[in-house]
Design a protein around this nucleic acid. Structure first.
Lengths: 145, 145
DNA sequence: ATACATGCAAAACATTTGCATAAGA
DNA sequence: TCTTATGCAAATGTTTTGCATGTAT
C-alpha cells in the first residue's frame, strides 16, 4: 500500500492547486476510496468514514464524491440497481463484470476492447471520448447456490 | 409501419397468454414504444400517451413499463443522466453510440462484441446474461461546429 | 480574517406501493 | 361476476441544496 500514499499525496496536491481545503473528512473519504477494491457505494463510504469521524454527514460524503468525480480521481459506475458505485483506483473507463446475485463487481481484462473502439471510431466517423461497458451475470460462487 | 402492427399483435397475444388485460392505456403505451426510434423516457411516454388518453396516470406508465420489461419486450437503457430510457424496437442488449453534443443515440454494429462476450464468459467462469455497452463521443456533424 | 467546508434539515427527483374505484374477461 | 388495472396520494430511496456554524488557510 505504498502506492496508495503516493496517489493520496498527488490528489491532495491537486486539491491544493484548486484552492480546495484539505479537511480530515476529505482525507478520510479519499483513503477509503483508495483502499477499497470493491467499488463502494456512497452509503458504504459513509458507514466507513463514520468509524473514525462519527459526526460526518451523508451530505459531505456526496459533496466530496462530486468533487473527486469533477477532478477525475474517482469513476462513477452507472446505476447498478439503486445507487451508484465508485472506483477510486482506476478512475478511467474500463469494463465491469457485475454479479446480479451478490452484487460484487470485478474488473475483467478485455483486451479486444481497444481494437473494437478504434474500429468503431473509424467506421462511424465519431470522435469517441468515453465509454461504459458492463457485463451482468452470475459469478461462480452464486451459481452453486 | 406494417411490422409494427405485427409486433403489436404478437405482444398483445403474449399478454393474453399471461392473463394480463388489454386496456386502452396499455395499447397506447405499447404503440408509443414501438413507434419511437429515439429511446424515450418514462416522462416522454407519459406526455405522449396523455395526448389521446388525458386521464392516464404516471403510475400506470411505470407499471406498464415494468410489465413490458418483465416480458422482455422493451429494453431498459441504464441511467444516462437522470432517468432511464427505453428501447421498444430492439428489446435485447446492444451497443449505443451517444453524441454528447446533440444527444442523439444510434445503434452501431459492433461485430466483435459476441466474440468478446464469449471469451469473457470462458475466462471468468461467470454465466453472463446481459450487458450494457455505451460509447460517448462527438458525431461528424457536431465536430464541424 | 476570510473564504470555504461541514452538518443539518428540507427539497428535489425518479420510482414504487397501497387502496378504493373502474373496467376487461 | 370476478379478477385485474387504473388513478390518486403517500411512501421510498437516492442525491442535491440552502443556510447557519465551524474551521483550514
Amino acid at each position: 500500500m505504498k502506492n496508495m500514499q503516493n496517489r493520496l499525496d498527488e490528489i491532495l496536491a491537486k486539491l491544493r492547486e484548486r484552492h480546495c481545503r484539505i479537511t480530515p473528512q476529505r482525507v478520510a473519504i479519499l483513503k477509503i476510496f483508495l483502499g477499497s477494491s470493491d467499488h463502494p457505494s456512497v452509503e458504504q463510504v459513509y458507514a466507513q468514514v463514520k468509524v473514525n469521524f462519527p459526526t460526518t454527514s451523508l451530505a459531505t460524503v456526496y459533496k466530496t464524491v462530486h468533487l473527486l468525480k469533477e477532478i477525475g480521481e474517482i469513476l462513477e459506475i452507472g446505476c447498478v440497481g439503486g445507487g451508484n458505485r465508485y472506483d477510486g483506483n482506476k478512475p478511467y473507463p474500463h469494463p465491469h463484470l457485475i454479479c446480479t446475485g451478490c452484487k460484487s463487481i470485478i474488473d475483467p481484462d478485455v483486451h479486444l476492447l481497444a481494437q473494437l473502439t478504434a474500429e468503431l471510431a473509424k467506421t462511424s466517423g465519431y470522435r469517441i471520448v468515453s465509454h461504459q461497458l458492463d457485463f451482468f451475470g452470475i459469478c461462480p460462487a452464486c451459481q452453486k447456490r
